[in-house]
């Protein structure tokens, strides 16, 4: 009776997942469709006769953009960690003045629409000559991740027992030493979670790229796809092939780091 019930649930679950992921399948299917079959009526439901012309075109044109995105993503991770790790530590363990105010500021920071931030950055960058630079995009993208990083690190480090830190301090370790050789190694999991999200958000960013990097030759892959759509509306196999390639980091992370991702989604909203 019980086993039968769970088989039934598994079946329903598989169907629901299939429906949910249909657009992802469709992207994959279209990426393998021949240009000539693209406008077939009815559309081909399966890539019976796959072609890699889409992928060849995508890789030929988007390889520099993929490299740029990778670079921006890694830069954003580094900047996010440098700013949010010590801050999370201070808020969790050093009881600074105004901790509540900082909490509040971080919440407010997350509410500011990216389009508003983009205008502010544009106004600043145009003076400083940072428009159309990778450094400018790294800074702008990091604003997506820093508040999240601080709040997550604070929540995680608050759970490190006080005795562990006290023991280090009795041994004569400075606060910096304690932070570096005790708190950081213990926080490995949360560092992975924050790095993953910072990377994904920077990799996926469209708003900052399309506003601060508009006339550049050096563009991230999101902007590459957007321009691709604008320039040719017939090569949907190449567009979808680029989309599949641009989704690889997400797929990769989902397989390798699923538990860190679930931890990150819930961290901001639910407290145990």
């Amino acid at each position: 009776m019980k086993a039968q019930k769970t088989v039934w649930k598994t079946a329903v679950g598989v169907v629901l997942t299939g429906v949910m992921l249909f657009p992802v399948y469709w992207m994959f299917n279209v990426s393998l469709t021949k240009t000539g079959d693209m406008r077939a009526d009815p559309p081909h439901w399966f890539p019976w006769d796959p072609t890699f012309e889409g992928y060849t075109a995508a890789l030929g044109q988007q390889l520099p953009a993929l490299a740029t995105s990778l670079f921006i993503g890694l830069g954003t991770v580094a900047l996010t960690l440098v700013v949010s790790l010590p801050a999370g530590f201070a808020l969790a363990k050093l009881r600074p003045r105004g901790a509540r105010t900082i909490d509040f500021l971080l919440l407010v920071a997350q509410m500011i629409p990216a389009v508003v931030m983009a205008m502010g950055f544009y106004a600043i960058y145009i003076r400083l000559g940072l428009l159309n630079t990778v450094a400018g995009l790294i800074v702008a993208d990091s604003t997506l991740a820093v508040p999240f990083g601080v709040l997550l690190f604070r929540a995680f480090m608050a759970g490190i027992p006080a005795e562990v830190m006290a023991a280090a301090q009795i041994d004569g370790a400075s606060t910096w030493r304690t932070f570096r050789s005790i708190v950081l190694p213990l926080s490995r999991n949360s560092v992975i979670t924050v790095s993953l999200f910072a990377f994904l958000w920077a990799w996926s960013d469209f708003i900052f790229a399309s506003t601060l990097n508009r006339s550049s030759e050096v563009i991230p892959v999101t902007l590459g796809i957007f321009r691709y759509i604008g320039n040719n509306t017939t090569q949907w196999n190449s567009i979808m092939a680029t989309a599949v390639i641009a989704s690889l980091p997400a797929a990769f992370l989902l397989i390798l780091a699923q538990r860190y991702i679930a931890a990150g989604v819930t961290a901001g909203a639910v407290k145990d």
């Binding site: 649930k9 679950g13 992802v24 996926s204 567009i239 989309a243 989704s247 797929a251 989902l254 679930a262």
Partner: peptide
């Protein structure tokens, strides 16, 4: 929990992890 529930739940995260440009252009074509 049921058989495969953890795997299927993980698969449900996919749309959220994809770059928006990817989802948006896929929906446009669909």
């Amino acid at each position: 929990n049921f058989r495969l529930s953890a795997v299927l739940r993980a698969m449900f995260l996919v749309p959220w992890l994809l770059p928006l440009i990817v989802s948006a252009s896929t929906w446009s074509w669909m």
